[in-house]
Design a protein around this nucleic acid. Structure first.
Lengths: 340, 340
DNA sequence: ATTAGCACTCGCGATATGTGAGTGCTAACC
DNA sequence: GGTTAGCACTCACATATCGCGAGTGCTAAT
């Protein structure tokens, strides 16, 4: 069953994938001959198709229809047949330009990445902000807002700001807070949530309150499996014939509404370097049944975020891979520049 | 044409709206008699229906179908016929509880509002973070991150944090930055972007760089018509029969993907106090054709955010209004507590 | 190994038909 | 005058039927 494919069988599979990705219509032997391989007879192509079908690379929805690549067929295509795509110089310029335009606004470029990926690939995109396994304090600030309350701001190891309200029983003075901030920053830099919670260097009630508030914030960040998530391009997905039926459309929309999905996808992508392609049963999330995911991590050190394109298995893999590859590189560079 | 409706005609309109909202099926005279008004004959109801139809409150899709409320009919219903709904004590408790659970995480409760509104009304929800017409500096912070770059953090009048990267030609020392921060906070508190840009109190290159960076950030906030926007419940909308067709589904999905929509809706809601109901042609955004919007502002002073429920005109208006009413109150209280 | 020939399959769109919920109208009724 | 029974009429919707044609699988010839 699983014996080697001949040259021509591989070519036929490649053609079937290319044609089906482009048209979403089952590909018949006639179409192949007409468009791709003049000089061979349809019957010959049909014979190869039978081989491909019995090996599980293609199938037909019913007897008198053309062939459709199976998940296994797409996997084989991506691994052995596809010639790697490359973004045009113009596109690369545009990407770099867009990212550098908003270079200074840390919050926005993750959202830009999602929009960009969606537009360039014609599919939906998921992007998560970088996350560390364990939050470490990088810098603390306290701002008095009302008489007895202050805003506690923590810059954590992953380079993101987090905030929490601190309410105290006594009136607060900004100078007092500044002093505490200075001491805490000197002493607690690089510490994790538990270490801060157990730290016994707090001398006053207020210091203890700040310590507890900070520890609580960091524990929340640790616990919270939901870093900030961006997505884009759901409407592009709904335009694909795969999601023409109402159930499918609702299913995918619901899937995109739960932020946990993006987080789980990101967790998988963060494990290894490089672009990862998941097709069919390789996509382990049941809500994404029938979808393919192309993604990669970005960032550095142990601070990784993830970018991904989600679409039907009938997808321009070459383009998706090239886009993910390039955007993740640009973001990694930018990230290095931004937070050392 | 526009003469007063009789008691019974009003009752019939109310029944048509109630039944159509519940079932989404055109309402016939038989159904009305069977379910709501035993003792009257279908012919009588039909006569009233003719009156309602010629006054423009109802119509039928074709001759031999039941009646459907028109936009005008819904408007009349909301203004004259509907008995105001009220959330149950349990629901109120739940809302307050959920908001207080995350009370201290300023970033999350706007998102919670969206999810909550969507779930409680069965429609999509839009929520914008509070926004001021003109950004005013409340507090500044600078954190050295790399040798020549620092993170500039500004707490602005609307109570939200904004950040921007500051890159300098000379190495930066945190103590130096702290001094600048102290001076800037004393001098520039309450100032707007232009005032800061024109401020000539900066003495060193670094101070000038900080001033320019801060002014740039605040101008960006001013310029940027896009405050942070949350949405939820799109999948609930797609489950409604109004969006069963592919075009409708794509149209509404695309509408929700552009953040400008939420901003424009919010701008309209911020103008007046109280719950606002927009139906049919009262909804001025073409992408929301055929939709109704129930929304209100929240916050205080000149710092308003907006919450809104977006659904088909066939909507449980009583419930939507009660929910918006209550949630906006809770959020306004919370807001007052959080940022004075 | 390749190809021409051919009978066969079956989804799809077009057409026809029956059904029934619901209407509008008229005339009788209270 | 408002209300109601009676009745012919309308029209979307569901179901059944049918022809078309793209595409297959098999066989036998090259």
């Amino acid at each position: 069953m699983d014996r080697e494919l001949t040259e021509r069988q591989q070519a036929v599979l490649r053609m079937i994938v290319a044609e089906y990705v482009a048209t979403a219509v089952p590909v018949g032997s006639g179409t192949i001959v007409r468009k791709y391989a003049p000089g061979v007879s349809p019957a010959t192509v049909r014979n190869d198709m039978v081989t491909l079908a019995s090996a599980g690379y293609v199938y037909h929805p019913h007897t008198s229809a053309g062939r459709i690549p199976s998940d296994k067929g797409y996997q084989y295509y991506v691994r052995h047949l596809m010639q790697p795509g490359e973004l045009s110089a113009d596109e690369k310029r545009m990407i770099v330009h867009l990212f550098h335009q908003i270079e200074r606004d840390l919050g926005q470029w993750v959202q830009l990445a999602a929009t960009l990926l969606a537009q360039m690939t014609g599919n939906a995109a998921l992007v998560t902000a970088p996350r560390v396994a364990r939050a470490e304090l990088q810098h603390l600030e306290l701002i008095a807002t009302q008489e007895r309350s202050a805003l506690l701001i923590a810059l954590l190891g992953e380079g993101m700001l987090h905030q929490q309200l601190l309410v105290h029983s006594e009136p607060l003075r900004q100078e007092e807070l500044d002093q505490i901030v200075r001491r805490f920053n000197q002493t607690l830099r690089g510490r994790a949530a538990e270490e801060i919670a157990e730290w016994d260097g707090a001398r006053t009630d207020l210091e203890r309150a700040v310590r507890d508030c900070l520890a609580e914030l960091m524990m929340r960040v640790d616990r919270q499996a939901v870093p900030r998530v961006w997505q884009a391009g759901l409407s592009l997905l709904l335009a694909q014939p795969e999601f023409a039926s109402r159930e499918k459309a609702q299913e995918i929309t619901r899937a995109f509404e739960q932020p946990t999905l993006a987080v789980e996808v990101a967790d998988a992508l963060i494990e290894y370097p490089g672009v990862r392609v998941m097709i069919g049963d390789e996509v382990r999330w049941s809500v994404l049944r029938g979808c393919a995911v192309v993604g990669a991590r970005y960032g550095a050190d142990r601070r990784w975020g993830a970018i991904a394109v989600v679409g039907p298995t009938r997808m321009r893999y070459d383009r998706a891979i090239a886009t993910i590859q390039y955007v993740s590189e640009v973001m990694t560079d930018l990230w290095a520049k931004l937070c050392g």
